[in-house]
Each structure stands twice: as C-alpha cells, then as structure tokens.
Design a protein around this nucleic acid. Structure first.
Length: 549
DNA sequence: TCTGCTAGCACCTTTGAACGGG
DNA sequence: ACCCGTTCAAAGGTGCTAGCAG
C-alpha cells in the first residue's frame, strides 16, 4: 500500500517535525460534543442503519476519534505565498495537477479505526473573474457549477495509524475544464474561484457508512483557495510555480549559463526566467499606473464558527466589499476551518431553517451562536520540504453530473456523460437559495459491479422538485484511470450507457468499505448539497437542529 | 480587436524495469 | 537465490507559444 520511496521521504519529514510543524488548529470541535449530521432528505433507514444497532453505541466509538482529529496543511508557508499572490491553478482538457499539491498531516485518529479521506472542490463564490490591471476582478456572474466530483485518496480506507504515520498526499488530484471528462478528474470552470475541502470519513467496520452514526469531519484551509485558469494570468504565480515546482525546473533561468552560475553559487536555481522578466516588464508598466479602478473582487471570507454549546460549524461567508483577491489572504488568519459532524438522525434536519444567506452581510459573524477563533499560522503545520506522494494506488473518484448533461445527451444525441458513475451533486456553497425540503431519498446501494451514469439532482441550478426522482439515483465508484488506459480502451470506455459498461468501471470492484463509503457519499451528495448551503450561508440553522443524541 | 482556449513543444522529474555485484 | 545499488529509457508533469474560435 505504501510506496517505499515516498514513504521514506515523508516519514523522514514527520518523524522529527521541525519547529514549524504544528497542528492545524486548536479551535476545532475537539472537546465538544459532535453535532448530528445534517442530512436532510435522508431518513435513518435511508442511511442504511443496521437494524437493532442503537445510535448511541456506535456514536461512542465515533466520538472517540472524529472529534479529536486534527489536520495540518503541509507546506503551509508555500500555500500562503501563493495565496497572497492570488493562487491560480491551470486546468486543461487532459487534467492538470494542483501545485502546490494538497498534502496534510493528520493526527488524533484512532489508530485502529479505518477512515476514508477525500477531497472536493467547491465554488468559493458566485463570480466569474478576470485578470485586469494586474489584479483579479469580478467579471460577472459565475457559470453554472460543474458536476461535483470527489477525489478519494487512493489509500482509502485505511487505519488511523496509516494516515497518521505519514503525510497524506493528494498530489495526483487533477483539475479539468472538460465537462465530459472521462478520467474522473475534478471538473471546474475557468476563471472561477474555488475552495478545496478535505473530508475525513469514519469507515470502521462496526460503524459502517450509511449508518446513522457515520461520522465525518471537514477541513477547509482558506489559503488553498484558487482561481482556475487555462493559462496563468499573474506573473507572480508563474514565478512561484517555476520556483517551487520541480517539474517546471526547465523554466528556471534564462539560459544554461544562468543555471550553471546559479549552481555554482550553491543556488538550486535562478529564480528569474526570461518569461518572468518579460512579464515583470509588462506588469511594471501596468503597476506604474495609479490603481484607481474599483476592485470588485468579492472574496470568500471563510470564517470559523463554533457552536456555542461546543458543537462547531465551519462555513464561508461572503464579504461583498471590494477587495482584491491577492490581498485578502494576508488580511485573514489562516485558520483551519473545522467542521465535524456525525449523522445520527438526519431526518430531523429536513426542515432546517435557513437563517442567513451566504451573500448577506458579514454581520453573521456576530451571531450569538458562533464565534470566531482562527488559530494563528504558527499553530499550524509548516514544512518547506517537497515530498513526493507516498502512495502508488490509483485514485478513486466520486463524481457527479448535472442534469444538463443528460439533457444534452438526449437532445443532441451526444454520448451520455462519460463515466459519470457515482454522481453527486455539485456543491455550490455560495449560492443563496432557500432550503427546499427534499423528500426522503431512499438509498440505493450500488452493486458490486459498477452502475452506469447517474443523474443526481443538481443544486442549486435546479430546484429539488425539478430534480430527478431519487429512485433513479444510484451510485457507483470507479477508479481514476490514466489517460493511456482510457485511450487503450477506446471511447467505449468513456460512454458506458450506449456502448456497454465501461471497462474502467469494472476495473476494480469496490471493497465493502468503498461500498459503504459510497453509501455515505450518496447521502452526502444530498447533505453536502444542502448542507453546503447551510454551512456556507446558513449554517446557523443547521446547528440549531443538531442534537447530541 | 480582444479574450480565452487548445495543441504541440522543449525541458525536466519521476518511475520502474533491467542489470550487475556482493 | 536473494538483496542492494546503479543505470537507463519511458512516462508523465511543467510552462511557453502560436494559432484558433467566439
């Protein structure tokens, strides 16, 4: 399971943590009772609770671990550098890795309990951006969110000891702008701002996914937010990428002599390239002009909230004031946004009140139910080293597809959404919409053979009522394929419904844990969809409906 | 004309198989 | 036969650039 090379490297980095290596946050839900997971639309039965298993029994085990889990972002300083410049991530049709890559150090897990770690990337706001006058500015309203996809760490499920033993790297996560991406990459819109989120899901045998006691927590590092682009806009970002990404080493230095000189000077590389010089020339000309243009870059003011009784909430709240994207990070603490939930009785969250819109005034900060307590940077893990991924396993993707794709397929006779196995709804935390009560969604576990594409209701683009009947929704899991694998298998692998079940989906039957995870994620597709709206703009209401058993 | 996107490119790192020595 | 270290080629990641499309 572990790759020796990467393992040794990562272990080296963490066996003797340096002074900058700290826990992410001290203000998470530790020492507080876990709130019940808001999973509107899902009854306990729908969640697959084993009959006869009382929630309190398993809840005890869950509380031993989930609430104590702490996550530290690796290379936080590097992330901070990018964030202060306004992080951009290239997205391509074929998929592009993130850099800096998302790596975390996890502590506080139960060593024997199994967990699934996964990432999703949600819109940070509802704006489209443009890079103008050397700054990111709002250019209009966001395009409809892409089909939501999850990147499940290839080691999942694994024991807490495994996760805590080393860095958990999501280095192989790829971003694409291809709406019909067959590789399982996370689909994003260009020129939009996104926020990655880490979810830790308990996968213990005795507390299977789908049960009412399924526990999970969500970690959001605001410095990992970024704007997706098809080509870099900000030369500072280009420079940072070239400086820090080993794969971009070829762009360090203007020529061989520079490189040689730099090496002779014991520098690993010269930091200024020809392109950088060229860009700097342009930007200097731009910056020479007084910056009088109004900056309408609405940014996501992620704020840390904690439920007054100890239960926590984390969500984003928009602050619509004009701030340039590349300045807001420095104004905010790099807090770990911690969100730890445990589903016990999701049915009671069906009528969660939506108190406050995400886009409303930041006065929500002052809500009596919450307080801000962002931890300082130095409490969080910092590590300048660049570590390779420690696990060789291929990634699993939980993907989602919007109904518009189905519509296209039906109308235009185009192939159905390729490999949209395991659809789950796009998470659009920014959108302000009222929480519509979705009827209880019967869970349909996917069979051991993989199912074909699934049309999940896509919110908030469509309303819950307009969503397809939940009975049509079922999940499947497929493992992320290399492009060569897909190429080898030909287009048939990409379009399962019309041309048969894709080989990719048959490639690796899901383990019971993944089945369980699938159940869980299916439920999460609803809970996240709506919960996201709750968390991100009306989290207050969610908490009020939580109970502690 | 402008902006965003794509394909191809050169350059580089990573990876894993092959090989040889102890 | 096994282990370990080295070598090397293939695969893959990177930003750059020209050209295309709307």
């Amino acid at each position: 399971m572990l790759q020796d090379k990467g393992l040794s490297e990562s272990e080296e980095a963490f066996r003797a943590p340096g002074p900058g290596l700290g826990e992410a946050s001290t203000t998470n839900s530790t020492n507080v009772p876990e709130p019940t997971l808001a999973a509107p639309g899902l009854s306990g039965a729908a969640l697959g609770s084993p009959p006869g298993q009382g929630p309190d029994v398993a809840a005890t085990a869950a509380e031993q671990t989930i609430e104590n889990i702490k996550v530290g972002l690796h290379e936080k300083e590097l992330w901070k550098k990018f964030h202060e410049a306004g992080t951009e991530m290239i997205i391509t049709k074929a998929g592009r890795r993130m850099f800096p890559s998302y790596k975390v150090k996890v502590t506080g897990m139960n060593p024997k309990t199994k967990y699934i770690l996964l990432i999703d990337i949600v819109p940070a706001d509802d704006h489209r951006y443009k890079f103008c006058d050397n700054k990111w500015m709002v250019a209009g309203k966001a395009e409809p969110a892409m089909p939501g996809r999850l990147y499940v760490h290839p080691d999942s499920p694994a024991t807490g000891a495994h996760w805590m033993r080393q860095l958990v790297s999501f280095q192989k996560l790829k971003l694409t702008n291809n709406h019909l991406d067959p590789f399982g990459h996370i689909i994003l819109n260009s020129m939009h701002k996104y926020q990655p989120r880490l979810h830790i899901v308990k996968a213990d045998e005795n507390n299977a996914f789908g049960s009412k006691n399924t526990a999970f927590c969500t970690h959001v590092f605001p410095e990992t937010s970024f704007i997706s682009v098809t080509s870099y806009q900000n030369h500072k970002i280009t420079q940072l990428k070239i400086e820090n990404n080993p794969f971009a080493k070829g762009f360090r230095g203007s020529d061989d002599s520079d490189l040689r000189v730099a090496r002779l000077q014991s520098k690993e590389y010269p930091v200024i390239s020809k392109s950088i010089m060229r860009q700097r020339l342009v930007s200097s000309q731009l910056s020479a002009k007084p910056d009088v243009s109004p900056l309408h870059s609405a940014h996501q003011a992620l704020q840390h909230y904690q439920y007054e009784n100890g239960a926590h909430m984390q969500f984003a709240a928009a602050e619509p004031q004009d701030l340039p994207l590349n300045t807001f990070p420095a104004q905010r603490d790099s807090s770990l946004f911690y969100h730890c939930l445990k589903r016990r009785d999701s049915a009671r969250h069906l009528d969660l009140p939506c108190k406050r819109s995400y886009l409303e005034t930041p006065s929500s900060v002052g809500d009596d139910h919450y307080f801000r307590s962002p931890p300082p940077y130095d409490q969080q893990m910092l590590s300048p080293s660049y570590c390779s991924e420690v696990t060789p396993r291929e990634a699993c993707m939980y993907s989602g597809s919007g109904p518009e794709i189905a519509g296209v397929s039906a109308v235009d006779d185009l192939p159905p959404p390729p490999l949209s196995c395991n659809m789950w709804t796009s998470v659009s935390p920014y959108t302000s919409y009222s929480v519509q009560t979705m009827e209880t969604v019967p869970y349909q576990p996917f069979p051991t053979h993989f199912t074909t594409a699934t049309m999940m209701p896509r919110l908030p683009t469509i309303s819950a009522q307009s969503a397809q009947p939940p009975g049509n929704a079922h999940f499947s899991v497929y493992n992320q394929l290399s492009q060569s694998q897909v190429r080898e298998r030909g287009p048939s692998a990409s379009f399962p419904r019309e041309r048969g079940l894709p080989a990719v989906c048959e490639r690796k039957p899901p383990s019971p844990h993944l089945n369980a995870a699938n159940e869980f994620l299916y439920s999460q597709s609803f809970s996240l969809t709506r919960e996201s709206s709750l968390q991100y703009h009306s989290g207050v209401g969610t908490v009020e409906n939580w109970t502690d058993g």
